[in-house]
């Protein structure tokens, strides 16, 4: 008898995932410009959803203010490249580090709020960031700024190459975020997170430092969300306080994606992102009705299937594409022998 995390399904998924990844890397050669942009957007949303899920689904930190870091990333990226002449490829990691550094004192402050009040506290932080961003005249104040063409051109030669590079960066961050989430959840940190989620009191009595575990998660997610934000506005090439700190775009949609897909699983946000984009591409013309429907579906899922679509699939089939839970191999055989005693 042995304990393992992998299953034939997860090994198969890994293989298919690798093939899929190779195909996606090659997308600039087989996909049109519009499809490439759409795929890039999907990757960025999948990243945001995975990061929010890490906070809310695993660390119990339900934030409705992650737009603070998306906007921060966009503004840090624009400021670094436009005001300080930092090369694009250097500005991206600097933005991520800046996001992590800024999120530390923010965490220290808003961790004083419990549960749902924590959620609104994160929103206040996002509002503060937005109002501060609107006070920066060098970046256009309240009306925003565009990334000058000579900076954009340093990304790559020619428009096709630039689109391809922007696409690869989005794909890269999605893979990196997913890998980071997977590694974190399999580490001691991840086990501590899941212990806290299951039973905070028991986790405390096992000697887990809850505050520190949550703090580390918040800062990591803050840094990575900032990086995603920088990439989002590298794609958009234009920034304004309203767009950068939009609660709808960077939090509401992300929450719906995770809730519908399945909160507290790694697969859920990915499934949710695909559903979200399928709906958006077919129903976005409906405008507000589409958003009302999205809200209603999210409420229905929360009430009747709180584990989301992936939760339903897993409950029916026991499937797990990302091997996180432990399973005991050979237990059935052992029980069969012991029952003969």
């Amino acid at each position: 008898m042995q304990v393992t995390r992998t299953s034939p399904l997860s090994q198969g998924a890994m293989m298919i995932g690798l093939l899929l990844l190779i195909g996606l890397v090659a997308a600039p050669w087989w996909a049109g410009r519009a499809d490439l942009r759409l795929l890039g957007e999907i990757f960025l949303y999948a990243s945001l959803a995975t990061l929010w899920n890490l906070l809310a689904g695993y660390a119990g930190l339900v934030s409705v203010g992650q737009q603070a870091y998306v906007g921060l990333g966009g503004y840090a990226f624009f400021a670094l490249t436009m005001l300080f002449g930092v090369p694009i490829y250097l500005a991206l990691p600097i933005a991520a580090v800046a996001g992590a550094i800024i999120s530390a004192p923010v965490a220290a402050l808003i961790f004083r709020l419990r549960g749902a009040y924590f959620a609104i506290g994160t929103w206040v932080i996002a509002e503060v960031f937005r109002l501060v961003a609107a006070q920066i005249p060098a970046l256009g104040g309240g009306s925003g700024a565009s990334l000058p063409a000579d900076i954009v051109k340093t990304l790559a030669d020619g428009r096709d190459a630039r689109e391809a590079v922007a696409y690869w960066l989005a794909l890269g961050i999605a893979v990196a975020v997913l890998a980071a989430a997977f590694v974190v959840l399999r580490s001691r940190q991840g086990i501590a997170l899941m212990a806290i989620r299951d039973n905070e009191l028991a986790a405390r009595s096992l000697g887990i430092d809850i505050w520190r575990t949550k703090f580390v998660t918040y800062v990591m997610v803050g840094g990575l969300t900032t990086l995603v934000g920088a990439l989002i506005f590298l794609q958009k090439l234009r920034i304004s306080p309203e767009a950068a700190f939009s609660a709808n775009d960077w939090t509401a949609f992300v929450i719906f994606i995770v809730v519908i897909g399945g909160i507290g699983t790694l697969e859920g946000p990915i499934l949710g992102t695909l559903i979200f984009f399928a709906l958006r591409e077919t129903m976005a013309d409906l405008g507000t009705v589409y958003l009302i429907a999205l809200g209603a579906v999210a409420i229905a899922v929360m009430l009747f299937a709180p584990a989301g679509l992936w939760g339903l699939i897993r409950a029916k089939t026991g499937a797990e594409l990302f091997p996180l839970s432990f399973r005991v191999v050979g237990l059935a055989a052992r029980q069969a022998t012991s029952s003969k005693d």
Binding site: G115, A116, T288, V289, L291
Partner: peptide, 26 residues
Amino acid sequence: TMGDDILPPLLVTFGLSIIIQNGLLT
């Protein structure tokens, strides 16, 4: 949604917020 878990009331009222906003817009 009432219970020990804070997530359901939070997310359901968040969904309501989006519905009311867009309902008013319509």
